[in-house]
Design a protein around this nucleic acid. Structure first.
Length: 448
RNA sequence: GGGGCUAUGGUGAAGAGGUUAUCACAGCGCUCUGUGGCAGCGCGGUCACGGGUUCGAUUCCCGUUAGCCCCCCCA
């Protein structure tokens, strides 16, 4: 009896579908972005999913986890090594240089909302293909830029309806003052290396800064009295940092100084920051992170150009919204009219009729595949429409149609020519009330 | 790279070492081309895959895979 069903092909590990019922979150976030980010002068743009792998090794840094273990690379038949982009800043800078954007008035302010790829273990709010909103301000080294970016990140989360996070901030200096700090740090940890975890022993050679935010007990203990970057900042960096903080104070953006915050990408200089959930949130993954990268444009072959930016994990934002039960408006207005057709002739005439409702700006639905009036009315009911139009053989012959008020069940036969106007008139007289469909929606939400 | 939990129709659940594997909702079909808020009836599961224990396993054990989650790291 059991027919041999073909084996189903599954999605790739760590990749997920974004289903219709979740689209409203995306639409909602996108609207907030447009309202806020575009108002502040950022223009949307996009880069290809694939880049030369070298772009990332040269910018993000070979020893970072993102490059060392998470990047997806592939070799073309011609022998090029390409990579699925794991982040958006390097491609942005590449596009900035390649398209000669340096001749535009500076700063150039860009944003993107695109897929990124990292071969990481999937878990809460972490996918191998995920989406980032990224902002980049290129060509302005002033403190105001850092502050504006952080301010916008904060405003964006606020406008989305999130408030259970902290803004952590630090300065990691620049090429002038950081080496001295790195040296001091290395000396410091070298004396305590026996207490460090295996990872951190490697970091001691390759990336000492990262030992600072290691979560291993021994490392945390060892890091307790580690020298802090603030004490090593040269005059320029110190003032820059100070001014950024003053801007934030002025803009009433609350922040926490985290002297040990060090980002996982090599291109950062001076200001770095992270928006992390506070203790009340069940998730602990960073929502937004970014900083200044004054050297990156040079590193990628451009002239000396300061820049700063951040990226937000969209899936994480949606997760946080669901956790917080942020109310997201419905995807669209409910249909007002359902067209019930019975039989061949009415079915044929239904399509033009349907189209005349669309032209009149009235949202109508129908189910042309179905035959019985019962099942069609049931669907009409479920959709929560105000009117059902019943169009059978009789009506098709007389060029009439039955207009049924779903609430009362009262029916009236209307001339076919007049039906659109009649519906329009009734909708105007008594606009639909009742949050019934919205409630159903919330129930569906609660299940998630 | 390390670890934890889980796997039963589409979804959510229940279930027992033994011959028809329950239930709810959804889907589809029919009753039914003429009236919607629980109408009736029917159809969907080799109980994830592979192996072991056993007379017998979907149930117990091991492995694999996948999902969820934690560490690491990150958005």
């Amino acid at each position: 009896m059991s027919k041999n069903k073909a084996k189903q092909v599954q999605s790739v590990r760590g990749m997920h579908d974004i289903l219709p019922e979740d689209q409203k979150y995306w639409r909602y976030i996108q609207k907030k972005i447009e309202a806020l980010i575009e108002y502040y002068g950022f223009e949307r743009f996009s880069t290809p999913i694939l880049e030369q792998a070298e772009l990332f090794t040269r910018s993000v840094g070979e020893t970072t986890d993102i490059i060392a273990k998470e990047i997806y690379t592939l070799k073309t038949k011609g022998g090029d090594v390409l990579a699925l982009r794991p982040e958006g800043t390097a491609p942005t800078v590449r596009a900035y240089l390649e398209n000669g954007m340096h001749v535009k008035p500076h700063p150039v302010k860009l944003y993107y909302l695109d897929s990124m790829f990292r071969h990481d273990e999937p878990q809460a709010g972490r996918y191998r293909q995920f989406h980032q909103l990224g902002l980049e301000t290129i060509g302005d080294g002033s403190e105001a830029v850092d502050a504006e970016l952080i301010f916008l990140a904060n405003k964006l989360l606020e406008s989305i309806g999130l408030d259970n996070y902290n803004v952590q901030i630090n300065s990691i200096g620049d090429q002038n003052c950081r080496p001295a700090y790195i040296k001091a740090l290395r000396d410091y940890f070298r004396n305590r290396s026996k207490n460090l975890c295996a990872n951190c022993k490697v970091r001691l050679k390759e990336n000492v800064l990262r030992i600072l935010d290691c979560k291993e007990e021994g490392c945390k203990e060892a890091a307790k009295e580690a020298p802090q970057m603030v004490d090593f900042l040269d005059e320029h960096c110190r003032l820059h940092f100070k001014h950024v903080l003053e801007f934030l104070d002025e803009a009433k953006v609350p922040y926490i100084l985290n002297p040990y915050l060090a980002r996982g990408l090599d291109y950062y200089t001076r200001t770095v920051f992270e928006f992390v959930p506070d203790e009340n949130a069940s998730s602990q993954s960073t929502l937004i992170a970014g900083g200044r990268y004054d050297r990156l444009i040079e590193q990628l072959g451009g002239s000396k150009t300061p820049a700063a930016g951040w990226a937000m994990g969209v899936e994480r934002i949606i997760l946080a919204m669901k956790e917080k039960q942020v109310h997201v408006p419905d995807s669209g207005p409910k249909p007002k009219v359902f067209l019930v057709q019975l039989g061949e002739a009415p079915k044929r005439k239904a399509l033009p009729l349907f189209e005349s409702f669309r032209k009149a700006g009235i949202d109508a639905k129908s189910s042309l595949g179905r035959d019985s009036i019962k099942s069609q009315l049931r669907i009409a009911h479920r959709l929560g429409v105000r009117f059902a139009l019943i169009f059978g053989q009789k009506e098709a012959l007389d060029s009439t149609i039955i207009l049924r008020e779903m609430d009362t069940g009262v029916q009236e036969t209307i001339l076919l020519d007049r039906i659109v106007d009649e519906v329009k008139k009734r909708l105007k007289d008594k606009p639909i009330a009742g949050p019934l469909p919205a409630m159903a929606e919330e129930d569906a939400l609660a299940k998630h």
